[in-house]
Design a protein around this nucleic acid. Structure first.
Lengths: 184, 184
DNA sequence: AGGTGCGTACCGAACGTTTGTTACGTACTA
DNA sequence: TAGTACGTAACAAACGTTCGGTACGCACCT
């Protein structure tokens, strides 16, 4: 079931997520879908769950050590460096259309962002403790900054993969982190 | 006509852009719409034109002087600091769903990004000439970086306006630009 | 000057398709 | 027997698209 939903998501985005598309993808009837989902909104919610889970369990590079390197790794793991990672990012970006229109989904996306920033926070704190970042650094501001930068690179890379190959994405991230260190 | 299209876009996003919605918005029939647009894709293309024009002619703060201040102004003008600017950004973000699914629209969005970066470029060059940025700065990398950061702030602010009020958005931008100067 | 022809602008209705949803039937299981 | 797990069929609504018809204006002809 989650497999079929994900395949539809990857192929057509959230805008192309329909009961029949999912049913066809698993060679089943629409009755099966309505049996498990009382409404379309429930299907969308489940699709977001699927995306959440695929995001959480995706292959990730483990942070080598706390601090700046850990932060770099955490952000690198988000970038569309592989076709699979690109597909995942495409799904999330495509979800923003509906999330901006529906307040309920908007709240969910806001919480998702909040969770991501919360997961980034310890790395920044460790980087400060390590002396990689100046002690007077405002943690929340820096977290929001690197999160913004990373998603900005994601979007640009999705629309122009030729101009933003994996190597450049990583170089851009390195450049930003280096600049933020300020006292190297 | 462009007024009606824009109202639909602002209220329901690109996902909610239908012939009937536009027709209703201008108290006309669907026949009028099909008279001017041979297909739905033509309507979408026109809607993107409308969005492009509203973006180009939106009220902007003029760059006080070339260099870092000019770059800051150019980026500030993009941020969703007012309800109108937020509506405009919402429309653009909502357009990404379709642009990721349709190759033709994808190319168009890629070119739009390219144009934006090209417009940012002179400011970066001037900043280097002024000594605001180190002479060894890679212009294209820095342009991509500030563009990424800005759009990343846009998305976060759209989903969490409470946590990203205008003052914080500007403070975050200032913080980034300050960090990029590196030799103050 | 006045009729005629024709392209443009638009309406209103209908078409076929796709959508989400509902209802009903059937098989299996406990 | 009761309940879960589906399939099949139909539904109304909304969609993009097509089409016949009307009104208007401008050129042309006599």
């Amino acid at each position: 079931m989650s497999e079929a939903v994900w395949r539809v998501l990857a192929a057509r985005g959230f805008g192309g997520l329909t009961l029949r598309a999912v049913a066809a993808e698993m060679n089943a009837s629409t009755g099966l879908l309505t049996h498990y989902f009382p409404s379309k909104k429930a299907l969308i919610a489940y699709a977001l769950d699927v995306a959440d889970e695929r995001t959480a369990t995706r292959p990730q590079e483990l942070p080598p050590k706390p601090g700046m390197d850990g932060l770099r790794t955490a952000l690198t793991n988000v970038l569309p460096l592989t076709p699979e990672a690109a597909a995942m990012n495409r799904v999330w970006v495509s979800s923003w259309d509906g999330s901006l229109a529906d307040p309920e989904l908007g709240t969910r996306e806001r919480n998702r962002y909040e969770g991501w920033r919360a997961r980034l926070r310890p790395h920044v704190v460790a980087a400060i403790d390590n002396g990689d970042l100046p002690p007077e650094t405002d943690v929340d501001e820096l977290v929001a900054t690197v999160a913004a930068f990373t998603h900005g690179i994601v979007v640009q890379a999705l629309f122009d993969p030729g101009r933003f190959p994996a190597a450049r994405q990583k170089a851009l991230l390195d450049g930003l982190l280096h600049a933020l260190q300020a006292g190297h």
